[in-house]
Nucleic acid binder design. Sequence first.
DNA 1: CTCAAAATGAGTTGCGTACCTCAAAACACC
DNA 2: GGTGTTTTGAGGTACGCAACTCATTTTGAG
Lengths: 346, 346
Amino acid sequence: MAETLTTTALTLKDIAREAGVSLATVDRVLHNRPGVRPDTVRRVREAIDRNAFQPHVAAAELARSRARRFAFVMPSGPNPFMQQIEAYLGEMSGWLSARRLKVEMIATDVFDPSVLAASLEALSGDYDGVAAVALDHPTVRAAINDLVDAGTKVVTLVSDVPSSRRHHYVGIDNIAAGRTAGALVGRLAGGRAGKVAVVAGSQGLRDHAERIFGFNQVMAAEFPDLSVLPVLEGRDEDSRSEQVLARLLGRHADIVGLYNVGAGTQGVAQALSEAGRDKVVFVGHDVTALTRRLLLQGVMDAAISQNPGHEARAAVRVLLALARGEPILREQEKIRIDIVMRDNLP
Amino acid sequence: MAETLTTTALTLKDIAREAGVSLATVDRVLHNRPGVRPDTVRRVREAIDRNAFQPHVAAAELARSRARRFAFVMPSGPNPFMQQIEAYLGEMSGWLSARRLKVEMIATDVFDPSVLAASLEALSGDYDGVAAVALDHPTVRAAINDLVDAGTKVVTLVSDVPSSRRHHYVGIDNIAAGRTAGALVGRLAGGRAGKVAVVAGSQGLRDHAERIFGFNQVMAAEFPDLSVLPVLEGRDEDSRSEQVLARLLGRHADIVGLYNVGAGTQGVAQALSEAGRDKVVFVGHDVTALTRRLLLQGVMDAAISQNPGHEARAAVRVLLALARGEPILREQEKIRIDIVMRDNLP
DNA sequence: CTCAAAATGAGTTGCGTACCTCAAAACACC
DNA sequence: GGTGTTTTGAGGTACGCAACTCATTTTGAG
């Protein structure tokens, strides 16, 4: 009836006895310190595996009195999504200080590869872990690899740099996000035929490009009655987004759907309402104060969201697990693609 | 540029000095031990607050050598959702044992109030925390309150007992889940007029009743062209669900939507396909191997899901925080209502 | 003022690990 | 066999707190 899921607690001393060596040797093996014969290493490792030994997290943490330092490298300038991440980190301050963790925010121009790379290089040695919103660019990739080589744990946040040797990526699969947006626009259009507009920040941004790719995939395969118009670039700015979209709406009377890939949501909504096109199915990204309002008003129909609070916490947990050498709970740290409509607004 | 989010690390000794008392007195205050004058308690508390003192989690954990025991009281019998929760707890075993936590699964008939209450009472004293899938019934409520009074931390899981003094509820808002289902059925029906069928396990179950309530709310308010048929009771069984639904489908040719509130999904899908009614918008609950397949095949259109992995982990984290006297990260532990469609299948 | 009760101080021990030193043993090489 | 090097053992200290004991001081009631 009652089934135990955990094993009994062993200590290093037990492992030492099992392996027939002293505590010091076990310690050397555990921390990859030199001066142990390969054969002895093997014996110790075997004893550890055989007993599924887990070092006591609390004891380990206590013993290494040095506090851990993590840096979050984020875009400078006002970006609601990033501000939310910052806010959630602030909410964790009690949790962090109880674990003697120091988290610092570093604002930089993440869109300039050389500036970003320089910011990353400057962190080397000072931090145990770095979470960065990074561009996928050779210079940045090199900076990340340098950090990794220096022993710093590196996590990419929101936007990945898959070609680098970063330890982990905390963010969503943007192609799947685009596919989801496509399915929503198509299904919510409810069989109407017509055109679909797409507004992005820039097709040069990896995440935007991936979303558009996924979006087009689904539209082409499943909604033959809907034709996707060429992508508008709004540079994530309200005014420009409004401008380009207004022009497009003027030219096409049969637009039934709209996918806003990045920010500039305010401008997009404005253009729609000024053109009196509130029947257009409008799908966008992220739950902010603005999109929340638009969803409640029925202007937006759905938002694709990656929970920023979850991302912030996952980044910290992953960095901590990496620093401690603990396994990562992949399932827990995976960021889901949330579909948010009016009735399941968080 | 670099802004620190945490404060410097103080220790109990610092607090003692600040408050002008000895370590022993601080310890007494911190653990609510008797023998301290109210005025002194106040002084110590003030020193703690003034410095936003956080006991070092690792040190505290290490000092209390006793391992913590948590019990998960779950329904007996084969229930895929519950099995998933069990599986995720199993995946955490490394994480658990590194923290010297013991989690035990206790299967019982959660639908029989007296049996459930007896199971709960039996736990008293042996466990630091209990997570229970519980019925909302006076007898159960009393058993929960008894546990709480005995100092055990109690968390309700999936289904709440709001009238009890349980410390926390880990699960979704079922009314909002029902509303979301309603919005999905209505929107995905795409303007078609007709009838909507609802299949539930039993209207006596609190969570099912709440979902139906939310569903009807939205349908009545927003989709006047759709009329909801009386709720069918399938007792969460495949065969019975298929039977009752098949009969209903035979009687009504104009059914355009279907909401399956509980389990029995296999039977519901079977009835639909045998009647050749694959155009019916089908919304159900939970992502299992079955619903995953149905979504991919296009039989189901959307599933409302509460991530069982998240629920399992949240329950453990909440119990641990409660046991340690740490604050709970409400935002983190909140269970979201996930809308899962084919393209954002996790 | 007296005396018991209450409040407080001072101190100890142990939790399991990290990190360090120093000496002893084992080994390799000529 | 002697030398130098590598490997191993033994042991200590520190980390911050929980939990406890025992002596001492303070307090309040009579």
